[in-house]
């Protein structure tokens, strides 16, 4: 292991190549599932490939993060390294923000331009002559071509489950902050309680969200296939849900590490990164709540 005065340069590592192979195999498998499935062919081989890839990925994640945690525990990382991690994480979160921005952009475009045009308003209003009997409304319950895309019977109102979910996430943002302050102050027991509470809140959010999806699919006929409302609704809330899952997982790992006695009052970047990430999913939810559910 190279020892330097100011910089820490880690030794060569196998994980990047493992990660590449894992990701490549997983995605190739997934694409094969979709393509062969779409053609009505057998997808067994593709599934095997996908699972193998996923296993390699899981192995890699444990291995890679494991070695980073070991190195960090061994005190190999300087303050400079820590700053690099911080920059890395914040820009990563910024890239996630832009990913959501693409979907929000799509939502705004559709609502402000495409749907009104199809309904006969605005600059391209003459498009309406292609869609007889179509009314531009939002939420869009009747699509321009109801045969190709049967619309939902009803959509989900904001003041039921979504409101509860909002409260859950906002309070979880609060609990994780309390845990963070406790960690800084060195009260390890308090950290465990409040971090645990955050995870419970996150899990309840996910359960309620799943409940909402089942309700939408089974009773409201609101599905991915029910036109642009369903498309934007499920893509936005779905990606958000995936991020909440990931965030909960990260917090859970942090909880395990706290129990194992990791982190000190001034060296706990892993914890902070997870907390940042958690705040980020929280903020995205607030935007979702306003633009997808309320307006």
């Amino acid at each position: 292991m190279a020892e330097n005065q100011t910089y820490y340069v880690p030794e060569q590592s196998k994980w990047p190549i493992v990660a590449t192979i894992g990701l490549g195999v997983t995605l190739y498998g997934l694409a094969s599932i979709l393509v062969n499935g779409g053609r009505g062919e057998s997808t067994t081989g593709a599934w095997v490939m996908f699972m193998v890839g996923a296993l390699i990925m899981a192995y890699m994640l444990f291995g890679w993060f494991g070695s980073v945690i070991r190195e960090s525990r061994a005190g190999l990382y300087s303050a400079q390294m820590d700053r690099s991690f911080r920059w890395g994480m914040s820009w990563f979160i910024f890239s996630e923000v832009m990913f959501f921005a693409a979907f929000f952009g799509a939502l705004f475009y559709v609502r402000m331009f495409a749907v009104p045009w199809l309904g006969g308003e605005g600059d391209k209003g003459s498009s309406a002559m292609l869609w007889e009997g179509f009314q531009a409304t939002w939420p869009l319950v009747q699509n321009p071509d109801p045969e190709a895309y049967p619309g939902p019977r009803e959509v989900i109102g904001p003041w039921g489950l979504p409101l509860i979910n909002t409260l859950l996430l906002v309070s979880s943002s609060f609990t994780v902050t309390v845990a963070h302050h406790a960690l800084k102050a060195g009260h390890r027991h308090t950290v465990k309680v409040w971090l645990g509470a955050t995870i419970v809140l996150g899990l309840s959010f996910l359960v309620l969200q799943a409940e909402e999806y089942v309700h939408a699919y089974q009773e409201l006929d609101l599905t991915l296939q029910s036109g642009i409302y369903g498309s934007t609704f499920f893509m936005l809330t779905g990606f958000h849900g995936a991020h909440v899952t990931l965030g909960t997982l990260m917090l859970f790992i942090m909880l395990v590490r706290v129990f194992k006695g990791h982190f000190t009052a001034d060296n706990h970047f892993g914890f902070e990164a997870a907390a940042w990430y958690w705040h980020f999913v929280d903020v995205v939810w607030l935007a979702l709540f306003v633009f997808v559910y309320i307006l």
Partner: peptide, 30 residues
Amino acid sequence: VMPVLAGVVTMMLMDINFGTSFFDASGGGD
């Protein structure tokens, strides 16, 4: 911008394989 590209190809993926209508006017997309 790379995440935005990822977003747009994801919309394509959904349109192709999962029946969404981001880019299909008959479902209200464009």
